[in-house]
Amino acid sequence: MKPGPGPEKSAVTPAPQGAAVLPSGRAVPAGRAGTNIRRLENRAAYMFLIPWLAGLFGITIIPVTVSLYLSFTDYNVLSAPTWVGLENYEKLISGDRRYENSLWVTLKFVGYSVPLVLVFSLTVAVVLNRGLAGLAIYRSLFYVPSLIGASVGIGLLWYQVFGERGVFNDLLGLFGFEGRSWVTNPRYALSTVIALNVWTFGASMVIFLAALRQIPDSYYEAASIDGANGWQKFRRITLPLLTPVIFFNMVLLTIQSFQSFTQAFVISRGTGGPVDSTLLYTVYLYQRAFQHLEMGYASAMAWVLLIAIALFTALIFWSAKYWVFYGDK
């Protein structure tokens, strides 16, 4: 690092003393020249940031702000929005039977999905961590569903597989069970959607696998010598040390599950049925927005969802201090 040439002799302003270095590593002379270079570098930085900033504003911030405005209006897309104040929100709270139903359906969906995914992904990760031959293959195999699971194609496939003449019933038949249509029966349709969501546990599993690898073998060896069996090792060593990752996955999965749309939409063919049994919050939102052309009402729904997700996440964060152990540095 070269020292600067010293303060410029300026008749007007006293220049700041000393040398400086810009983040780019360039040494900068003090005084006027330094300020100019600094300004240039800042400008360059902003120029590089513009594409990302444009996306942030154009695709995220501005539409979100507009939707907040729309939530106080009556807007059917085909004509200009008219201001209605809190009417949409009032209707949500008191007057919408299908809305309440969608709340229950969504809570059920999240309430089953998140724990099931956590349990499955952790179990499979523990099994795979024992180091079977072909670990990489199994890991990829389990991961693939999470890549394609949220797609329309898989949703359609699921509809077929669990339909009345689907493969699943053939499988049941092998064991002597009577099949039925799992996707068009209000008692089972939501379970089918949950099953599809749980099938994509691979992403969480890969994260658990990585975390398991971090636990030193010597912990388990010491435990072996101390006489712990597999279950005790899991419960007293593995699980406590995994709590940060469990927490992470739990937050991610919760947010994801609340936003889940494609699977329920495709399996119910856009109806959220039968009899609104798969009417997730997002599906109902879609119906009000795009089928009934009530953008204002749907925007209000979207904002309520945002607040709800934020509250749930905050709840999980608050609970973390009771059960998540972070390694002390």
Partner: peptide, 8 residues
């Protein structure tokens, strides 16, 4: 060698 003390 690394003591294998359970950090939690």
């Amino acid at each position: 060698q690394n003591y294998a003390l359970y950090p939690h």
